[in-house]
């Protein structure tokens, strides 16, 4: 079996390559420039083949036509993990990578004669934070987005759902907020809960002096976390177990016994040795500016007020191991 992976140089992609190279005869990896750097990055795997291409290009693969059709006819599985994940990125950039990129990949799939399954990495952020439940099997109707990332990922998932094919099965993976390796390596960029921890670290002197810490948040908001290595392992497991039967399946990859914000902040208090309590307030303008001063982008806010809980029924069915990934086991990596 051969697999094509997009976004292999990304955070999740690097882990995916590791798993895939063990289980697939050839792992095709899409890179924008076949520079020596990326070659050296994958050279030690042996069965990883670099393909020059760009998901924003209409034809994706910018290689010789004969070679292109030959390679495309050999691919059994496509994992589309390329995306621009940056809560601060501009809408145009997000649109180009997430929507245009996905549409071009969907078009590319049509020329793969042997394709069995298309794995698209979506995100849990497609859920509407003002509703209470995110179902696995559907994409909720939604029109208001606080950040470009979720808006464009939403459109991308919509495109995938509109373009189901009878020739291959489609699997939509919605991972939660991907945090660092559970074995302890560092998070490559500030994101999600890290924004928070960074801000507190920066202003720790001031915060320690406060009698209480006023903060606008919903104490019951769940933080859907998953360590990157768990996420990659689960995706690999799902692919290896796939019987290519149901035309479409969606999986929510989030860890077990997730903390809500109150529990998370309790852990923060322990980590920084704070005595003052976090007092939840309603969303208001003053707090927005305080967050700004603290360096937390306002795009994080919807996650702090999310009411969502997440359906995991089909994930549990096909992937009982997801129970093993628990917050209490990996929270140490957040609070190193």
């Amino acid at each position: 079996m051969n697999i094509l992976l997009t976004g292999a140089t990304g955070f999740l992609g690097q882990y995916l390559v590791k798993y895939f190279s063990k289980h697939f005869s050839t792992v095709y990896v899409l890179t924008r420039k076949d520079t020596e750097l990326s070659e050296s990055q994958f050279s030690h795997f042996g069965n990883v083949v670099l393909l020059k291409g760009d998901i924003t290009h209409f034809d994706v693969l910018t290689i010789d036509e004969n070679k292109r059709s030959k390679i495309l006819s050999q691919i059994d599985i496509v994992v589309h993990a390329a995306a621009l994940y940056d809560l601060k990125a501009s809408y145009s950039d997000c649109f180009l990578q997430n929507v245009v990129g996905t549409q071009n990949i969907l078009h590319l799939l049509k020329s793969m004669s042997r394709l069995k399954a298309f794995y698209a990495i979506s995100t849990i952020a497609v859920g509407d934070p003002t509703t209470y439940f995110l179902d696995e099997n559907t994409l909720p109707a939604r029109s208001i987005f606080e950040d470009s990332y979720s808006a464009t990922k939403y459109q991308a998932e919509q495109l995938i759902r509109e373009n189901l094919s009878k020739k291959f099965v489609t699997r939509i993976i919605r991972p939660g907020i991907i945090i660092g390796d559970s074995s302890g390596s560092k998070m490559p960029k500030t994101d999600g809960p890290y924004y928070f921890l960074e801000a507190i670290k920066k202003h720790i002197g001031l915060i320690k002096k406060l009698p209480f810490i006023p903060l606008s948040f919903n104490p019951k908001a769940k933080i859907p976390l998953i360590p990157v290595d768990h996420c990659a392992r689960f995706i690999d497991l799902l692919i290896s177990r796939d019987k290519f039967e149901n035309q479409i399946k969606t999986y929510h990859l989030i860890s077990n016994d997730l903390p809500n914000l109150k529990e998370f902040l309790a852990d923060v208090k322990i980590k920084f040795g704070l005595k003052a309590e976090f007092i939840p307030f309603k969303k208001n303008k003053i707090h927005d500016s305080i967050l700004k001063i603290a360096g937390i982008p306002k795009e994080v806010l919807p996650f702090m007020f999310s009411k969502l809980s997440y359906d995991k029924s089909s994930t549990l069915e096909d992937l009982p191991e997801i129970e093993e990934s628990t917050y209490s086991d990996f929270k140490k990596i957040l609070f190193q």
Binding site: F58, V99, Q103, H107
Partner: peptide, 28 residues
């Protein structure tokens, strides 16, 4: 939300029509 990428036959010729909805975003 009206994005698509389809091959359309129109009066005997096939065109690949790629549409993106830009939702009033001039920059985009």
């Amino acid at each position: 939300y009206n994005n698509f990428d389809e091959e359309i036959d129109f009066f005997g010729e096939t065109y690949r029509v790629i549409q993106y909805s830009t939702n009033f975003d001039v920059e985009l």
